[in-house]
C-alpha cells in the first residue's frame, strides 16, 4: 500500500531540487524579460564563451566520471541524481548572467 511518506534522503533531494527549480524559473523569467526589452537593439558584441567552455568541460568530465563510477560500487549510483541537480543550478547560473549582462 503506497504511503504519502518518503525517506529523509528523498525529502532532502526533493527540497534541493525544488529550491534549484525555483531559482531556475526566477532567473529564466528575468532573462526573458531582458530579452524582450533588448530584442530591437542592434546585434553587436563578440562571441564570448571561455567561461562557458570551462563549465562544459566540467560537465562532460563529471558525467563521464559518474558513468565510470557506477561500475565501482552501487552507492555511486547516487552521483546521477546529484549531477542532475547540479545541471539545473548550472543552467540557472547561466540564466542569471543573461538577466544582468549589459
Amino acid at each position: 500500500m503506497p504511503s504519502a511518506l518518503v525517506s529523509p534522503g528523498t525529502v532532502f533531494t526533493l527540497a534541493v531540487g525544488l529550491a534549484a527549480a525555483l531559482a531556475y524559473l526566477s532567473f529564466m523569467w528575468r532573462a526573458l524579460q531582458r530579452a524582450i526589452r533588448v530584442r530591437d537593439e542592434a546585434d553587436v558584441g563578440e562571441d564570448r564563451f571561455q567561461r562557458s567552455f570551462i563549465g562544459a568541460v566540467v560537465a562532460v568530465i563529471g558525467s563521464a566520471s559518474a558513468i565510470a563510477a557506477y561500475g565501482l560500487a552501487p552507492s555511486f549510483l547516487y552521483l546521477g541524481p546529484a549531477l542532475a541537480l547540479l545541471s539545473t543550478v548550472a543552467v540557472a547560473f547561466c540564466l542569471r548572467q543573461e538577466g544582468v549582462d549589459g
Binding site: D43, V44, G45, E46, D47, R48, F49, S52, F53, G55, A56, V57, A59, V60, G62, S63, A66, I67, Y70, L77, G80, P81, L83, A84, L86, S87, A90, V91, C94, E98
Partner: peptide
Amino acid sequence: LRKKDVSRTFLWAGAWFYPIPICIGLLGL
C-alpha cells in the same frame, strides 16, 4: 540568438544536459 550568445548558450545547454539522461537512466538499472 545574438551572435555574442551563440557559443555560450550551446555550451551551457548542451553540456549540462548530459546528467539528465544519466539520472533518468537509473530507473533502468
